[in-house]
Every structure is written in structure tokens, then in C-alpha cells.
Simulated scan of single mutants.
Amino acid sequence: MTSRVIVVTNCTNRKRAGYGTVALTAADMRGSLSSVAARWGRAIKKAPPSDQAQDIYMGRAFSEARQVTTTLGGTLHIISAGLGVVGAAEEIPSYNLTVADGDNSLKPLLTQLGKRPSDWWMALTAELGQQRSVRALLENNTDALALFALPGSYIALIAEDLASLTQWQLSRVRIITSAHGRTLVPEHARHVALPYDERLEGSSYAGTRTDFPQRALRHFVEALTGHQLSIDDARRSVSAAMHALAKPVIPARERKTDSEILALLRKNWDRFDGASARLLRYLRDEALVACEQSRFRNLWHRLQQDLANEG
């Protein structure tokens, strides 16, 4: 196998806010996909750089990808719904756009137009330039193995780009995603998607659903030295590793309203010194409350602000 490795991960909703964040208004989100992409492209091209990409994105998923990149002495690249493919050291503007749920999401527009996330990606890269595509990334790194660690939503985003790759290009690609994410990989590329599944949670690489691909990436590199294996050996190695693990039993958790969760967080704030990670573990493991990570983060920030105003 090649000795040079590039790591490709997804952008995150958690970003360090910069000056003059680029976003689309409700009026901007009207019209055809190409017209929206054109408005977005003009706004992005006019926006001044805020910081290097690696200093803007935050969260465990991004940290895991950075750690693996450092371990391998490789380079890190990010799939961004707003910028296309960007290098970690590239200076980018502060922006807010996503194909996932959340603020400034493209999902309502895509639903309205009957379009797929991959349609947005193709419109975006046509507007910003084909150098922002996955295909261009591989063409510019012909001597490297590319490790893609992406959730299903980002596999769906770049699906057509992946479908355009030649078999020779795919021979230098490993795709690490969830079991659901593998179903979204184009059929002719599915053989390079590694068979990771929820049994990974029974290992020392356990975590949350949002950072599953990046944790699996770290397992692949650290536990299996998979970046040194052929695709067939890599698939066999991952299958054997998953077979040796047992999926942990997830306790039944109760759904509660935002107000009920805020009350629990407020009551236990001092007990856990306001630490978000410890409060989330309390909610899930002790209070047995179902709360998705992004929802918890929003509630935690709201309570933090309320407590600061009260003080």
C-alpha cells in the first residue's frame, strides 16, 4: 500500500464563530437550486477569511479525525456543504449552511424542489469550481490512500461525486461510515466501504452516533493498522474485529420535553460543575432520559445563558 495517507472528514455544526458569518436569508432560499447556489457562491467569494478550517470546526468527530491525521503524518480535508472540499490548513470564511437539521439548513429547500443532497453538492461545486470536488481531491493526490470518515448524511451529499470515480481511483479509497451510511454509497463504490457497525460500541472506541465514523476510523488505524492493508484484507480485518465484539445493551430511555430536561439540568448543574459532557452522561445513564446530542447542546447553552443572566 502507499505510504502517504489523506484523511477526509465532514464539517460540523459546531464552529468557532467568526466576524461576519455568511448565511442565507429566507428570501435567498427561493428559486431553483442553481440560483440558490449562485447566490451562495457570490456571498462566499466576497467574504473575507476568518481562520484556518482546522481552527473553525469543533467537536469530538473533528478532533478524532485530526488525531488520526497526526498519527499517520497525513493531511486532513473536510467535506463542507457550504464550501465543497477544503484543506484543514486553508483559510475559510465563517459561514452557516448545512444539509442536516439545524439553523440555515437546506433540507426544506431540497424537499420543496424534490432534490437530493447530492444535487446541491453538484450545484455547489459547479458554482465554486470543480477543484472543490472529491474527484479533484483524488486527482491531486494520486500517490495517496484516502480514508473517508463520514456519516450517512455526508455520504448522501457526495454520492454523485463518488459515482464519478474510476475503479483505479476507488482502489485508493476506504470509506468508513455507519451500516446505514453504507447503503447510501453508490453501488460501484460499495466494495471500498468497510463493514463497521454498532458492535464498535462494545469496544474502547465507544461514543455517540454523531462521531461514529471518526471513532471507527481511529479503530481502523490504531487497532487494525488497516491503512497498510489491501481492500480485501481490510474488509476481512474489520469483519473479524466486529465479530469479536458484542453490541452493548442500550437501556430504555424516556422522552421528555425541553422544559423537563432543562429542569433536570438546572437541578444538577452545580453537582457536575456545569460540565456539558458530564451532564449529558447524567441524563442518559442516570436519569435515563433520551436526548440527542445536538438537542442537548442547544439546551445546555440556553441554560448556561439563563444562569449567567440570573447571576
Rank of each mutant, 00 (worst) to 15 (best):
T125M: 07
R266H: 07
A146K: 07
T225H: 15
V238Y: 08
L265P: 12
A216F: 05
Y57R: 10
T177M: 05
E160P: 00
T69R: 14
R199D: 13
G41L: 06
A88T: 04
A43T: 01
T21N: 00
L33A: 06
D161Q: 05
D285I: 02
Q293D: 07
G114F: 10
F272G: 04
G84C: 03
N141V: 05
A23K: 14
P108S: 06
L170A: 08
R172N: 04
V85Y: 02
A216M: 02
R182G: 10
N10K: 15
A88I: 08
Q52D: 05
L109N: 08
S237N: 04
F148L: 15
S171I: 07
P186K: 08
L265N: 09
G59A: 04
L72T: 05
T225Y: 13
L264P: 03
A17S: 12
P186R: 13
R215G: 07
F148I: 13
A244W: 12
G73E: 15
A277D: 15
Q67D: 14
A149N: 09
E222H: 05
R209E: 07
R215S: 07
H191D: 12
K267I: 02
F148T: 09
V86D: 01
G311M: 01
G207C: 13
P108A: 06
G87Y: 00
L83W: 14
S276C: 11
T75A: 14
L72V: 11
K267H: 12
D103M: 07
R266K: 11
E286C: 02
S153D: 13
T142L: 09
S164L: 06
D211Y: 09
K256F: 12
A61N: 09
A43N: 02
T12H: 07
P49R: 07
G59T: 11
K107W: 08
P186F: 13
A216E: 03
L194F: 04
T166A: 02
Y282T: 03
A81T: 10
K15F: 02
L264W: 01
R60Y: 06
L299K: 05
S3C: 06
M58W: 00
D306M: 03
D273M: 09
A252N: 04
P117Y: 03
W121C: 14
H243F: 02
V22L: 06
Q167I: 01
L224K: 01
R174I: 11
H188M: 08
R271P: 00
I44W: 09
I79H: 02
A216T: 01
L137W: 12
C11W: 14
L145F: 05
Q54H: 12
E187V: 08
A27F: 00
T21E: 15
L245W: 08
Q52R: 15
T69P: 09
T257S: 15
G226T: 10
T257R: 13
V249A: 14
A149G: 05
S203E: 11
S203P: 09
T9H: 03
K247L: 08
N268Y: 15
R255A: 12
L33K: 02
Y19F: 04
E90C: 03
H219M: 14
D55L: 11
I231H: 02
G73C: 13
T208N: 08
R255S: 09
A17M: 09
L157E: 06
Y19H: 03
